[in-house]
């Protein structure tokens, strides 16, 4: 059993009589990438702020590295790197000076600045004032700042928010490298299932302040089964084939839509179609969007 890095118990935060986070029990294991997923306003940032000691929980407790956050805050924060919501930076300073300002507080060697700039590939841009940076560069600078203290736990709140596809890809691969290369545990939040799916090992889904799902990604993928879409030359005739209609297929916009099935079963179906003289143009798997999945989670009562 891996040791746990973050444990919360009945965490709760009330803003003006409304609970932003309610009865939250997080469990994050050593060395994993934990995807913290939820729609806008679900309470992701609120939870992360509590984990960093930026706001006081209304009730409940937080343990990080096996220690009570309230009592050992500075000791814990020394081992944590973070990026909360929109990037924080000093626009009039260069990237190197931004990191230097943080370095002076962390008291790490100066050489660390060049190292983290290299990790986020900002080397060569460090002399420019940060206010002239693109959003993606600012976001990467934020990650560099989070890495500066060589943290064991990295907490990133929507690190890919507002980035273009290549920027998202870049940050995603950077995050995926961290546990393997540096042994860092990562908590990363997002409102996109597709994004979490591509990097996380474990996922926690939060909705209206409450955790509605917490398990491995593999388990999630099984449960959030999508559908299979077939585009064939004569869909109506194809649907009449016994095996196709047998697995509950239906016709939508002249495509055959089937529930998700095993690889072997798909191969069998395709073979049968081809043997019966149909031309198969496309076999696509269609995943549900997060919203659809949420509806299913709530209505279907998956937990």
């Amino acid at each position: 059993m891996k040791s746990t890095v973050i444990t919360t118990n009945g965490l709760r935060k009330v803003y003006r009589g409304r609970a932003a986070v309610e009865q939250l029990d997080l469990n994050i294991g050593q060395g994993e990438i934990y995807g913290f997923l939820g729609p806008n306003g679900a309470g992701k940032t609120t939870t992360i702020r509590m984990l960093l000691g930026l706001i006081q929980p209304t009730s409940g407790d937080i343990q990080i590295f096996g220690k009570e956050l309230r009592k050992h805050k500075l000791q814990i924060l020394r081992r944590v790197g973070s990026l909360v919501e929109s990037p924080s930076y000093y626009g009039h300073l260069s990237a190197a000076d931004n990191l230097e300002a943080i370095r002076r507080i962390l008291d790490v060697p100066k050489a660390r600045i060049a190292e983290v700039l290299d990790i986020v590939s900002l080397t060569g841009e460090e002399k420019r004032p940060v206010k002239g940076f693109s959003l993606g560069m600012k976001q990467r600078l934020g990650i560099a700042a989070a890495l500066l203290g060589s943290p064991e736990l990295l907490i990133l709140d929507e690190p890919t928010n507002g980035l273009d596809p290549s920027g998202i890809q870049e940050i995603r691969s950077l995050i995926k490298r961290l546990p393997a290369e540096y042994g860092i545990t990562v908590l990363v939040s997002s409102h996109l299932l597709s994004e979490i799916e591509q990097m996380a090992d474990t996922v926690g889904i939060i909705r209206q302040g409450t955790m509605i799902y917490q398990d491995t990604i593999a388990h999630l993928q099984e449960q959030a089964a999508g559908e299979l879409r077939l585009t064939v030359s004569e869909p109506e005739a194809a649907l009449k084939l016994s095996s196709l209609s047998g697995c509950g297929g239906s016709l939508q916009e002249s495509r055959i839509v089937l529930p998700r099935m095993s690889d072997a079963r798909v191969a069998l179906l395709v073979r049968e179609l081809v043997e019966n003289g149909h031309a198969v143009y496309r076999v696509e798997e269609h995943r549900q969007s997060l919203e659809q999945f949420f509806l299913q989670v709530i209505e279907g009562g998956i937990s």
Binding site: R49, S86, S88, Y89, Y90, A145, G149
Partner: peptide, 18 residues
């Protein structure tokens, strides 16, 4: 305002400093 401007308080206060 140096800290308010680009919401740097959250970054600063999440550092190990009281």
């Amino acid at each position: 305002n140096v800290e308010h401007q680009m919401s740097s308080w959250k970054q600063l206060l999440a550092l190990p400093v009281s």
